[in-house]
Each structure stands twice: as structure tokens, then as C-alpha cells.
Design a protein around this nucleic acid. Structure first.
Lengths: 331, 331
DNA sequence: ATGAAAGCGCTAACAC
DNA sequence: GTGTTAGCGCTTTCAT
């Protein structure tokens, strides 16, 4: 039972040529109205669906697009994937999501698999990696970098968050509340985004004439564990700070977890500014003050950049969306 | 720049037949070691990847599997998708995730798109719908039903959670604490899972000789809004109940949100048993008591059921995993 | 208005 | 050990 209904099956069933069937189904002009309706009706009855493989092999484009993110557990990525998936559905695109766990090896595998399927475009949160990536992996797929940017031997579109304003605002806010020793937890400078956030934090501290002691700036891999460890150092008194500003999704969750585990009260024991605004932040200690990203706008733009209609040859563009500081109870 | 490297490109480049290239790359026996290595080297240099479309068109199977879930915002689905995606990556399967928002129309579209791509199998959380589904949509794809089961004109594998034990345990626990008016919020009986949970709740109430007043049993669509409305009725005093047991992911989140918004203290004002154990539940009011599902085991089994190796013709199997009541502070 | 042929990338089945 | 042919489903091009 190979079973699949093809235009040839249909043609045989109707006693006509498969070409007539093809034309009838693709709305071509040169088919008798009568024939077309007959074919369509029978196709619907039999549950015919066009083979994407055959279309792809003809070189007509696959309408497959890829999304490569670290994970779907972090609510930011989950929400972004969720919105993008719905938008792709509505644009008749096949979205394939790959996870990297921020491991460059997994990222390579994901890209190879997208290339196997001849994906027309993909959007990726590049995993932290040393050196330049292999250009061959990108052959034939329109690339959009998301959140972070990796050094590449060619230009790509990019979709990033302009969060330096919100980070500075957080520092100013904390300074106005009288905090002098403010600590920053963020990704290391190997990530373009990490470097920028850190710079913004330091500038804001200096603008407030606050000390930027080295132990206040904690940068490492952007993981839950790193965030937890950094916060642990603060709540244990190992690092002397009265406020925390987070510069990454996972780091923020980890830091929050450590604070709550330690039973501290925010902002009384430590003032806390999170990053990424997962929905449950509003439920924690009266609401976690946080740096919120415009997820729906990002996804909308992502769809636009991924759409096959996007004309080739146009210069690569960088789209930046502003993050916003959401004031709640913890800072 | 049509650019794609094919076995013919390679063959021409090396001055040999494309069949030799094919054999060399697929480890076939009849190739000179020397030739094979040469071909492999050149293929790697040029960044050759096998066309999945061509393989699919030959009828060799696509290794594409689908996942159809209501959304990725609910942490249960997100974690399940996350784990399954990693497992699929490791099994060299292409996983395509589709979202339904519990809308049967979206579900239909998702299935048609999977069929276009000739997916070999898919796992679905069926959207709540009336009547029997159209069997033609399932043609050619191995089907696994997840969490819920829809009436179908044929048997399918299924992967469900046996949560009646945990629900009963929750009721016994609350009864032992002296609660007499316990309210249950769950999905309506159109969902197989909803019916079972409700029955379990009622049985447990009767076992404790507690009243099962109609207003205590709230069943409707499994949404955040429904959960919020049900809980609102309790905290406002409109429904007289001292404890809440939730029987659905979104319902649980909605109910929790309403309780927290109302500023109530759990379990003193109302005892609360959630459903699904998202990670942040442990951060709310000292920890939300909840019914936890074994996500990793579910995903592992899902992979097994989806794997193309699964022999055809074997009778459909139902795999059930036990949910577990996790005691925390709110009940 | 309809049909026949060719070709997209790949491999099973045959030559040799 | 290597080459040739054919065919998977579809549409473009060229007949009829």
C-alpha cells in the first residue's frame, strides 16, 4: 500500500492525462471549466495533496524556513517560537525549529539538516563560538541572525534588541533610590550582545559617579547556573552589593532562583532587575522589575525577513527593537 | 549561482560517473577504497549535502516527524517540545512543530502541511472538536495521540497521563486537612481526559463523604481565561469553597493568576492544587502544590512511537504514565 | 483544450 | 569496480 494519491493516480482514475490534472489543480487557464471542476472534486474526495518533495526537486522552492534557538524552556524563546510558528502557518511556510543548548556542535547539525531539506531561509540565535563560521554551511539559505551576531565572512540580515537604554535606565533608577554598589550579571564579551550590555551598564554607573569595582561585573556563559552562582555570591555577602541588574534571559532566571532560595526579600535585602519579562515574573514578590523585549514585533519582523518574497540582492539590514524597563516591586 | 552541489556536480568535477559518487557516499561495498576517499574528501570540501527531496521522491521515507500541540507558551508543552526536539536531533529525525491554539481548523492545516512534506509520523494533542475526524487526513502517516484522545475511525497509538490517582490523592489530602468544600476546575467532557479527571475527583469526594455540589465542579474549555474566571468566583465568595483542585495546564495557570491578583494567601485563604508543575510554581507563595507529569519519560516514549523503525501492522498501543502529586506550601 | 517529453537528485537493477 | 538506465511527482516546453 504505497497509497499516496498523485496526479498520475488521479489522471488514471479519470481517464485523462496527468498534465490535464496538473493544470486543473494549478488553476491554469487552458482547461475546460467542466474538466477542472471534475478533477478538483475527485482530488478532494481522494485526499490528494501535492508532494512537496517533487516541487522542491524541480527547484521551485520549498517554503521551508528554520528557527534555531538555544531552547524552548526559556519563556522568551518559547513565546517567540510560538508567535513565529503561528505567523508562518498563516503565510503557508513550514517552520522547522532546532535547539542548540548554546552548543556550536548542535548548531552545525541543525544547519546541515536545514540544508538537507533545502530550507529557503533561517533565523538563528548563534551559539557562542570562537572564530569565524564556515561559509559553506550558509550556502543557498537566506540567513537572519537573531539577538546575537556572529562574525561571518559575509553580511547577513539581523534582528536585535536595543537594550542599552533600558539597562542605563535601570542603573539610574537604582542610583536614585540610593544604591551605590550595583552588580551586573551578563554574558561574556564573546557575544556581541554581552559586550554592548556591559558597556551600557558601566557608562551608566559612571554617569552616576558610582564605583565600578571589578567584582560587581560578573560576565560568563549565558546560563541559568551562571546567574544562580553570581546571585549566590551577592546574597551570601561574598560580593558586597545592594542591587542586581541582569543582562540575559537564563542568567536572570538563575539569579532570581538563587535569591528566592536564599529567602531574601526584594527590594529590601537586594533590589533586583531581571531580564526578559517571562509572564510569571509578575507573580514573584509582588512583581519583578525587568527589562522587557517586544516579542510580537520581533516575530513579525522575523517573518518578514524570512519570507521568500524578500528580494535577493538587497543589502543586508539590521533591525533593532527597543527593550523597555518595566517597573514592578523588586526594584 | 544555482549553486547546489549534487552527486552529478561532484561526478563531473571528479570525471567519474554519478553512480560511483553515490556509492562512495553511501558506503556501498563495490567502490575502490581510494575512489571512496577521494569522493568523500571532495564532497566535504564542496559542502555537499544529500537532497532530502530526492530521497523523499524515491519513496525512501522522509525522516520527518510532526508535533502538533496547542501552544509553546504553556511550560508543559514547551518542555515536552524541547526534550522531543533534542531527542529527534540525536535520532536524525526532522521535527516539525505545529501549533493549534486548540482550534480544529488550525489542526487541519497542520496535518495537511505534514502530509505535503510526506511526514512519516506525527504526535498530536487533538484539538477539542465535535464528531469524528476525516480519516483521509491521516493517510500515510503513523499517528500518535498525546494527552487527549479523539474518536477516530481507526486505532492509533496513544500516549497519555494517568492522573486520576494524583487527583484523588489531592482530594484525600485536602479532606484530611479539614476542607469540606473543595472545588474542581477542569476541561469539559468533550475531551476524554477531562471526563476522566472529573470522575476521579467526584469519586474521591464521595470516598470522603464530602458534598459534591454542582457549583463546585467547573468544567469548560481548557483555557487560561476559564481557569481565571473559575478562581475568581471562589475568591470573590460567589462560590463557597476553601480549596481548589485544577485539572488542566492552562486552567491551572489562569486560576493561579486570579488568586494572586486577588491578593489571597494560600493555603490560609484558599488551598490550591495546581496542574502541570511549571518550574516557577516553586517560587510562588513558598511553592505551589501541584500534579506533576513525567515530561522526559513522555518525550522518550514519544520518540519511540514516532521512530520509523517502529514496525507497521503491530496493534496500536496505549502508553500511560502516572502523574504525581507534589506537596508544597499552598495545600 | 489536451497530450507527450524532458528533467530536477537520487538509487535499485542491470550491464560490462 | 564502474557505468547506464529508469523512475519516483511535478511543471515547463513543445506538439497536436
Amino acid at each position: 500500500m504505497s497509497g499516496r494519491i498523485t496526479i498520475k493516480t488521479l489522471a488514471q482514475d479519470l481517464g485523462i492525462s496527468h498534465m490535464t490534472v496538473s493544470r486543473a489543480l494549478s488553476d491554469s487557464s487552458n482547461v475546460k471549466r467542466e474538466t477542472r471542476e471534475l478533477v478538483r472534486k475527485r482530488a478532494a474526495e481522494l485526499g490528494y495533496v501535492k508532494s512537496a518533495a517533487a516541487t522542491a526537486m524541480r527547484g521551485d522552492g520549498t517554503r521551508i524556513v528554520g528557527l534555531i534557538v538555544p531552547n524552548l524552556v526559556n519563556e522568551f524563546y518559547a513565546r517567540f517560537a510560538n508567535t513565529l510558528a503561528l505567523l508562518c502557518e498563516d503565510s503557508d511556510l513550514h517552520l522547522i525549529t532546532h535547539l542548540t543548548n548554546d552548543d556550536p556542535e548542535r548548531e552545525l547539525i541543525a544547519m546541515r539538516k536545514l540544508r538537507e531539506l533545502d530550507a529557503s531561509a533561517f533565523i538563528t540565535v548563534p551559539a557562542p563560538a570562537e572564530g569565524e563560521a564556515d561559509a559553506r554551511l550558509y550556502q543557498g539559505m537566506h540567513t537572519v541572525q537573531f539577538i546575537r551576531k556572529r562574525a561571518l565572512p559575509f553580511d547577513t540580515d539581523s534582528l536585535v534588541v536595543q537594550d542599552t537604554g533600558a539597562i542605563k535606565e535601570a542603573v539610574h533608577h537604582l542610583a536614585a533610590k540610593g544604591h551605590k554598589r550595583i552588580s551586573y550579571f551578563g554574558a561574556h564579551a564573546a557575544l556581541s550582545s554581552g559586550r554592548q550590555r556591559q558597556t551600557a551598564f558601566i557608562e551608566a554607573m559612571e554617569e552616576n559617579a558610582l564605583p565600578v569595582a571589578p567584582e560587581l561585573i560578573q560576565t560568563a556563559a549565558p546560563t541559568f547556573e551562571v546567574g544562580a552562582a553570581c546571585a549566590q555570591a551577592v546574597v551570601s555577602g561574598e560580593v558586597n552589593a545592594s542591587a542586581i541588574v541582569c543582562g540575559g534571559f537564563e542568567i536572570s532566571n538563575g539569579a532570581l532562583d538563587a535569591c528566592l532560595r536564599a529567602g531574601i526579600s526584594m527590594p529590601d535585602d537586594v533590589a533586583f532587575v531581571g531580564y526578559g519579562d517571562p509572564s510569571f515574573y509578575r507573580w514573584i514578590q509582588g512583581g519583578v522589575t525587568t527589562i522587557a523585549l517586544p516579542i510580537d514585533e520581533l516575530a513579525q519582523k522575523a517573518l518578514e525577513l524570512l519570507s521568500p518574497t524578500k528580494s535577493e540582492g538587497v543589502a543586508a539590514q539590521e533591525c533593532a527593537f527597543k527593550a523597555e524597563l518595566v517597573y514592578r516591586a523588586t526594584a
